[in-house]
Design a protein around this nucleic acid. Structure first.
Lengths: 116, 116
DNA sequence: CCTCCTGTTCGATCGCTATCGTACAGTGGT
DNA sequence: ACCACTGTACGATAGCGATCGAACAGGAGG
């Protein structure tokens, strides 16, 4: 239990090499999480904070989803002031599970809830 | 509801082209189902009946898992007498979600429950 | 210092699904 | 006809996880 100031330099990021297929598939099996990944695709690294995603869930739920994605080695987060910037760990995750992320990113939005 | 004799020529098989990524990922997110797919890998088509898999679940649960896999376009089943022979729909599924099945089949067993 | 903003944590709820035992339905052999 | 075998259908249960509101914790700015 290293206390730090709760947020400082880095967060607990799962090494993609240690992520199990179970964890990866579980993380990707949720439509909201895939939506996050898709939104992150094509954007510059660390250009989007958690709050900038138009998600069909509450703030608390979104926070949960970000944590799952981080634990699955799918994204890296960086604290910048009060906000937490995200980066899609494309290369790392693709090295661990080749082609898997590509399938998710290629999927059409298909989520009528959030798009309206 | 065409009655037939409940089993005759074919079963309701999902066209892999119509399977959503959601369904595919959901189907693959279960370790027992992945175990089935892995066991089916490397075996000749339609050489294994449902009962020949050494699964860590009951007959009823296994039947459920086979149904999910069939619905996800991951396997094709063929009735031969009292038993239902299975075939991994490798090519079809790979055409729909390239590389996804390969990841599952490449995964180590890692399920200490069934192997003993 | 206080206030606003961002994100996490907590506790509770709700729904889905994996699980099981049992009963049922075909098929094949005797 | 009967029985053994294989798999499904059904009803019930349990546990996990997605969800929420509210409270909390830092940082930025006035």
């Amino acid at each position: 239990m290293v206390a730090r100031s709760r947020r400082s330099l880095g967060l607990q990021h799962a090494e993609p090499a240690r992520v199990t297929l179970q964890d990866a598939l579980h993380a990707l099996a949720d439509p909201v999480r895939r939506q996050i990944l898709r939104a992150l695709d094509g954007e510059p690294d660390f250009s989007r904070a958690c709050g900038t995603f138009d998600l069909p869930v509450s703030k608390a739920t979104a926070s949960h989803h970000f944590a799952v994605l981080r634990a699955a080695g799918l994204l890296e987060q960086l604290d910048q002031g009060p906000r937490r910037l995200n980066r899609l760990r494309r290369a790392e995750f693709d090295a661990r599970f080749p082609g898997l992320l590509a399938l998710v990113l290629a999927e059409p939005a298909g989520d009528p809830v959030s798009d309206g």
